[in-house]
């Protein structure tokens, strides 16, 4: 395929993905807005007012970046895992597999679909958060780069999950038993300073700690971990996830007989 043809194929996948999640917006966009509003009300306003300051900011200001990042992580992941597994389940993935579209274009198409949903939900959640607190961005560069890197990483993770999934239960196991605990223990609701040294060190094995703290730095200018380390870790995980996804596609594992 020429580069122009590859671009057409890529845009076809992205357009299809965006159309899919917009068509079912009550299942894809609305739940995050409602869930995050509840978090803002309960943790931010009701409980947060009794907690006081954290990291030099009101508790509401402190949790907002983590909650936005939580929405990005879950949406970019779940978009790719549900869409790609769905296409495996109804065999429509064969439309792509029989075509000359290169594997990396297939992967990029789905990943960009996941990124776009993650970012759209981030915008929705940010707008909702403005009803509860005032937000000012410390570094637009950090915010944009970290959002792109994080949504890419979790879209790739969703793709890997989709390839290995055999049924619809398999696409909810990882989000429920792995992703959610990692997010909750990733410093969304608390500062690492509150943890004893041992658990603070254990937390550093959690990739979500780097994601949440790097984003919090971009918004508030504070972070529990070093920014270069956070970028390095996210980049490393992203490269590994991309290479493994490409290996799965090239080998045809669980996609071709």
């Amino acid at each position: 395929m020429t580069l122009r043809e590859q671009y057409v194929a890529f845009m076809t996948i992205v357009r299809k993905e965006i159309k899919r999640y917009l068509r079912i917006w009550t299942q894809t966009l609305l739940p995050s807005a409602i869930t995050m509003s509840l978090y803002f009300v309960i943790f931010g306003s009701l409980i947060g007012s009794r907690i006081g300051e954290m990291g030099g900011f009101s508790y509401m200001q402190f949790v907002v970046p983590g909650l936005i990042m939580m929405a990005i992580v879950t949406n970019s992941y779940s978009n790719v895992v549900s869409s790609f597994f769905g296409s495996k389940f109804n065999n429509s993935v064969e439309e792509l597999l029989v075509s000359p579209t290169p594997n990396y274009i297939i992967l990029l198409g789905y990943v960009v679909g996941g990124i776009s949903r993650g970012m759209l939900v981030a915008v929705v959640v940010t707008i909702v958060s403005l009803f509860f607190t005032h937000l000012q961005i410390h570094s637009y560069f950090v915010v944009i780069v970290i959002v792109l890197m994080t949504s890419t990483l979790f879209a790739l993770a969703g793709f890997i999950n989709a390839v290995y999934a055999n049924n619809f239960d398999d696409i909810s196991i990882i989000p429920t038993f792995v992703l959610t605990p990692l997010i909750y223990l990733g410093g969304v609701f608390y500062s690492m300073d509150l943890l004893p040294d041992f658990w603070a060190n254990v937390s550093k094995l959690n990739p979500l700690v780097y994601v949440v703290n790097a984003f919090r730095y971009g918004v508030l200018g504070v972070s529990d971990v070093s920014l270069p380390l956070a970028f390095g870790m996210i980049a490393l995980f992203t490269v590994l996830a991309f290479c493994f996804s490409m290996h799965l596609l090239n080998s045809g594992k669980r996609l071709r007989q």
Partner: peptide, 14 residues
């Protein structure tokens, strides 16, 4: 949409 998307996978302009 199914037919148009398939054309896209073969690189045919919209």
């Amino acid at each position: 949409d199914i037919v148009i998307n398939q054309a896209g996978y073969y690189g045919l302009p919209r």
